[in-house]
Design a protein around this nucleic acid. Sequence first.
DNA 1: GTCTATAGCCTGATAGAC
DNA 2: GTCTATCAGGCTATAGAC
Lengths: 206, 206
Amino acid sequence: MDTGPAPTRIQARNRAAILEAALDVFSAQGFRGATVDGIAAAAGLSKPNLLYYFPSKEAIHDALLAGLLDLWLAPLRALDPHGDPLEELLAYVHRKLEMSRELPRESRLFANEILQGAPRIGQALEGELKALVDEKAAVIAGWVAQGRIAPLHPRHLIFSIWSLTQHYADFDVQNRAVLGDEDPFTHAPAFVDTLFRRLLTPPATG
Amino acid sequence: MDTGPAPTRIQARNRAAILEAALDVFSAQGFRGATVDGIAAAAGLSKPNLLYYFPSKEAIHDALLAGLLDLWLAPLRALDPHGDPLEELLAYVHRKLEMSRELPRESRLFANEILQGAPRIGQALEGELKALVDEKAAVIAGWVAQGRIAPLHPRHLIFSIWSLTQHYADFDVQNRAVLGDEDPFTHAPAFVDTLFRRLLTPPATG
DNA sequence: GTCTATAGCCTGATAGAC
DNA sequence: GTCTATCAGGCTATAGAC
């Protein structure tokens, strides 16, 4: 009854520790910069032991990216076509900014992958990502057509939300160098709120 | 008269070819992902011949980054305190966007370095970059105080200009995946122009 | 100045004892 | 399941001929 292939508690724990350590290392050093030894050390395992759980370095990386995409798209997926346009979009912006604060390693892992030409998730970008953006861009275009938000290019609006919010994770080192003692996240929420409020609010008719 | 250490025409040409090739390779694969062999092949030289011109792989990378920082800061440096605020800032935005279009490799080289914690240019960020941003942020704060542009956090404004414009270089693959056949740069200038115009224009007084 | 050949190191992955 | 020991390949850099 206990000799089957059911995953042990230890197995689950070690797999999780490996993925956690790998996220640390891959996001900070990129795929090529990372070493299996480094990941194993960070996970508290020996190198061969790590390779008992994952067949290769690439398999660890793939497992991370596969789990990441859904997490990354969730906030956009949550954009409600039947909600108030300005509220929905601002809520999306704030969720994304919160993710940059809480999950900067995930953001950097993603940025590393895109920056180097998306060799491992290019297909997902053209498939899953494009489909979702198409769907939500149509919603935004509808809001524009109804005059409920100011006129703008829906897909570039989405790009601007991605770039502004993820910048606070991906370029954190630079932001801190410029700001000195001030934490970048102290004023970021108010700033992006102001920016998108002014961008999206249609001019008062009269 | 020709036995001195004066650099030959061939020397200058080969050095330039190496830096050009290195920019290709480093920006696409990161420092660790790049190989000296790959750079040498792209430059049309043998590996030992390349190492005759630069003592090490790191020396090539350093030479690239050193030449890059001034180029990268030039548009912000050109912001004229005595010009029209909205015009000056929009001109800055468009210069940066133009650089993303014309020099995407430089943008990606920089992004790779920042993303991985700026191990090689951290000092320049806290020195040269911070000093320039401090200076220009004071100019922007003055414009805000005079009511010539809408109130906002000057340094976060600068962050937003960086992130929005550089996004078109660094995340180009993703943008193209989402847009399909449409070139990202077709509508980018109009979009960022609209965005910053709405952000910066003070509400009409009445 | 440019090449071939190679030294020496690092790294991903495996063998095999326990 | 976990370890020590090690292989095999790829990499940076150098030696030495031309």
